[in-house]
Design a protein around this nucleic acid. Structure first.
Lengths: 215, 215
DNA sequence: TAGATTGTTAATCGATTAACAATC
DNA sequence: TAGATTGTTAATCGATTAACAATC
């Protein structure tokens, strides 16, 4: 504890994973009072040491012999990650894509909710995905600043990527999870883009077959 | 060169990225004969040194003062990654999801093609996505071994994840790119799973807002 | 107290960056 | 030859693992 400064990326990702784990466990009705680094490690395929090291970054002391108070840990993680009760994000893609995403990663799971949906297809403006109204991407800059949306999930078609990133930047969104494959992005300076490149992941996995894991 | 043994994961991923870059450039009709580490670095937001270091793993010598022969590099990367002309993969998900994936990451882009589509929905067996017939996931173990499929792209619903991973394992598929969020996987031993956890990525991005990048 | 688990320090492992001689 | 770019070695940075004293 008392560990200041920006933690390593790998740690931030795992802290997010712990938060997801707790949100999910809560949803499933788990009400155990305490949680140890060992349990967490086993559930998430990590080592105990890594878990404890990670948790030194958040404002939550563990109790030797007992573990961490589940609820305290959850609250501390939420605070550390800068989340809110239901963290609102924006989603961008065609109605087709938005519908798939809604099925794959439903609203209000893991403590994340929607602020707005945007489609790049003109005719889809005004239609609904679930009970959410879809607006045209060109309206992204008009996103209500009061919503304080910081992150977007983007899966629009390739040609729309750069314009969409620009408009999100204008709307004050500083983090983007991008699912559409593309080689070179025209990312606005300062914008944080996590790009999932499915073709690269697949090729990496192909390579994995040539070098079988030793563990 | 002469660099043997399994390269670091980060390197394998970037080698895949270089291969994607070349496949994409070829598709766009780029026919420059040579390519330098600087160009590659600039296009992919990496450092020159990293690119050169990475390329020491593949069987392709660069020429001081000139760079790498584009075509040679492409062939060497393909060989190194264990790819083939059109590398066949399997895709798993509902018709809805498969359709979205086909739009987002079309067949025959980046040198990857399909071997088969599988849906977890009984009634969807026999339907078509694009010109590809969809089969039921329970048929995964019957996948023709002659196709030599090594990798699958899976985006089925949560309850199907574990059974699907098992059946893919039976079918000899050893690498999986999984898009469905889930905390704990029952992954068959030896199976290589790259799990994209959208909720975790989003929370990590949220955290990024609290610690603005310094560069 | 005894058992269990934390938090911290040191050691190791892994990856990137810097520097530069070799060479086309 | 001169200019440009490679490949390699050393230095740095970052992350994980191991070990263990502290403590509830």
């Amino acid at each position: 504890m008392g560990n200041n400064g920006r933690p390593p990326d790998a740690t931030v990702y795992r802290l997010s994973l712990y938060h997801c784990f707790l949100a999910d466990a809560q949803r499933r009705g788990d009400i155990e009072m305490y949680l140890t680094s060992r349990t967490l490690a086993e559930e998430l395929d990590l080592s105990e040491e890594t878990v404890r090291r990670d948790l030194t970054y958040v404002e939550c002391k563990g109790r030797p012999g007992t573990g961490y108070v589940r609820e305290d840990l959850f609250v501390a993680l939420e605070a550390f990650l800068g989340l809110r009760e239901e963290y609102p994000i924006v989603r961008v893609g065609t109605v087709q894509t938005l519908t798939t995403l809604q099925a794959l990663f439903p609203e209000n799971h893991f403590g994340i909710t929607h602020a707005a949906y945007f489609s790049e297809v003109d005719e889809e403006a005004g239609t609904f995905v679930g009970d959410v109204e879809v607006r045209h991407v060109s309206e992204i800059p008009d996103l209500d600043p009061a919503l304080e949306v910081q992150v977007a999930l983007v899966a629009c078609s390739q040609p729309w990527i750069d314009p969409v990133l620009d408009m999100l930047d204008q709307a004050g969104v500083s983090g983007v999870l991008l699912l559409t494959p593309k080689i070179k992005l025209g990312r606005p300076p300062g914008m944080n883009v996590r790009h999932v490149r499915m073709p690269c992941d697949i090729k990496s996995l192909a390579c994995g077959c040539r070098f079988p894991t030793d563990r």
